[in-house]
Write a protein that binds this DNA or RNA. Structure first.
Lengths: 377, 377
DNA sequence: CGCCTTAATGAATCCTAAA
DNA sequence: GTTTAGGATTCATTAAGGC
């Protein structure tokens, strides 16, 4: 059980080892401003949305808002919340790697303002995810629908960042081989998982279930990634990150939360590397050129290739192209041309004859890849 | 079958009989400005989503996705979209009765801006409702979660309006005697319900299902109420209003939509009063994904799975896949692979050890389903 | 007519490494 | 920064066509 370090005052330009897997005490904007730019892979944020933010609310003109003053009107309070949101989101964006992504969770009270600010700051929305609660609090007055969900926004740092982490294949495999949808079903955090205070009451009003964070991290991070939570609270982000072999950084203002989160995370046992291994994505598999099948002797020049229904046939040539009559080109281009399509995956389109039946040439590529295993790229 | 009147130029200060159950041609702000203030009970609005699509998108079979690229969905910037939204929402608010409510539907492209504008204008948000689609379009490139829902915002005119219509008891009775949640499950609009153009293609790119509108009206209107739709389109709001014994007003710019909506509504037969009560929600059998067993703590990463005769063993990984050596995949794919089969039901094939005997993992699925009782899948 | 196979399609911000 | 080319990617439902 390794203790969790706490940082009361982060030094300017700190080394990574100083802040990794720590909880930083303080205001989230001030702490974020001390962290190096482009240093975290994913941010998970559960910002407050009640307007009593302990005097931290400032109007856009920097005048301070008294959060319990009934006199300021609705517009003032929304503007103050927007300014607060803009401030921490801007600071968070500086810290995020160019291909990093951010998750923000909220309810209808604040999520629309959060989403608007995100778009205005240049974040590029990837999905909005609905957390459907199996056991939500009932509506007691019977004047509205039971508020049975919360909303998460998942966004990349920029419109142009395309290489963000998304473990599509693993998510699909874990979901009975159909792609993961934007609506997730989880129970709210109760029972032994819920941290209690000395009175036996709940320590934190909005502790999120670990299962929710686990799916977030399994979807959008790799083992060893750094996950930052600027509103650390009870430390769910840290606990799940540690269990899943990810690094965390938490920022939190309240001492009681920091203490509880530290103890909680210290008690977490990380999973074995073997259990954390990532399912190999096809698009990440080593590139195999069709010509290399000839080099390896798995395919001979002059072999006839056919599509699965033998509508078309092509001839393999010694230079790694295939030809139909006078037309020659890659397995992909010729496959596309015969079908009159823009594109075609030649590996799955073309087949060769073996023992009387047609087998896709992709099976030969698999043999190539198996042979390459253990050979440095 | 009563014809639907069309109004090309609404007179100033028109009598109610002039505009009730009509379709007004023109820009929605101009038309709204002609209607009397505080004259409609509920507004349902399906504004442009500002989709901001890039190039073409193709399905894996290379067919092209017919995208929403209509002129009315093009905006130069978020600011332009905000201005458009503020204008029509302000005009709509003048027309709404003090105890009236408004529904606005959108996706993550626009709904955050819509919600922000609503709050800024003084609308008081009552719920955000998630329309979960049973049959959404997949994500074809595997780069995001399948976008499987849209969001509706339900709001009253003012924070102070308390006497808005909400048929709590009727909804609860129609929902197996549990209160209606904020997540609703409906199929998208297809089949015979979908209006077609002369070419047999879809008449309108975003026609909403009648079931969705029916629940909206059953929840928030009384028979005889007036429902206004400022983006009338194919006239779903009018068709459902007429069927449910409510009045409608539609505003629409395009002649072809007005004509189709008129014919559609003229063919609607209003329900008998008696039948109005029994609008029932459809429930689906809950589908359980293997990964959700891990989420729920019923299965731990690192657990060994075996077939019933212990010929093969596999290791459960944290991402919800299982692995034998280097090969990882879903319970179904790995089960199929070890047997050399095309397919396999992993739920019945794989077992785990408990108290010395092997139990199928399907028994854990049953526990999940029991826990999920009452929550539509 | 029924049964089985194939095709079509829906509010979509949907690729990426190498040259 | 650009362009080029390899080659990876889909779920539920309706409707039409074949036999």
């Amino acid at each position: 059980m390794s203790a969790v370090r706490r940082i009361d005052e982060l030094a300017p330009e700190p080394k990574k080892a100083e802040w990794l897997d720590t909880i930083i005490k303080g205001d989230c904007v001030a702490a974020l401003d001390r962290l190096p730019e482009k240093s975290v892979d994913v941010i998970f944020a559960d910002p407050p949305y009640n307007l009593q933010l302990g005097g931290d609310l400032h109007r856009p003109d920097q005048s301070r808002v008294d959060a319990v003053d009934d006199e300021w009107d609705q517009f003032d309070s929304f503007a103050a919340y927007d300014a607060f949101t803009r401030a921490w989101m801007l600071a968070a964006r500086r810290v995020l790697k160019p291909n990093g992504t951010i998750w923000v969770i909220g309810s209808y009270h604040n999520i629309f303002r959060v989403g608007t600010v995100m778009q205005d700051l240049g974040y590029w929305l990837l999905n909005d995810i609905v957390w459907r609660k199996t056991n939500p609090m009932p509506n007691f007055r019977g004047r509205r629908f039971q508020n049975a969900h919360e909303t998460m926004i998942w966004a990349s740092r920029d419109k142009s960042s395309k290489s963000y982490t998304f473990n599509y294949e693993a998510l699909k495999a874990s979901n009975d081989d159909v792609q993961m949808r934007s609506d997730w079903l989880f129970p709210i955090c109760t029972g032994k998982e819920r941290l209690k205070n000395e009175d036996g009451g709940k320590l934190h009003p909005t502790q999120k279930p670990e299962a929710l964070l686990a799916r977030v991290m399994m979807a959008s991070t790799k083992p060893g990634d750094v996950v930052l939570d600027p509103f650390f609270g009870s430390g769910t982000t840290g606990a799940v990150a540690k269990r899943l072999g990810r690094h965390f950084v938490g920022i939190e203002r309240q001492d009681d939360y920091i203490e509880a989160a530290s103890a909680r995370i210290a008690g977490v046992e990380p999973l074995e590397d073997m259990d954390l291994a990532q399912m190999q994505a096809k698009r990440a598999a080593p590139r195999v050129a069709f010509g290399s099948l000839l080099d390896a002797g798995l395919m001979q020049p002059g072999t006839q290739l056919h599509d699965s229904k033998r509508r078309w046939s092509a001839n393999v040539r010694a230079d790694g192209t295939i030809a139909i009559g006078n037309e020659a080109g890659s397995i992909h281009r010729i496959g596309a041309r015969v079908q009159g399509l823009e594109a075609c995956n030649g590996w799955t389109f073309w087949h060769f004859e073996e023992e009387g039946s047609l087998k896709p040439i992709d099976s030969l590529r698999q043999i190539m890849r198996d042979n390459m295993q253990g050979v440095a790229a």
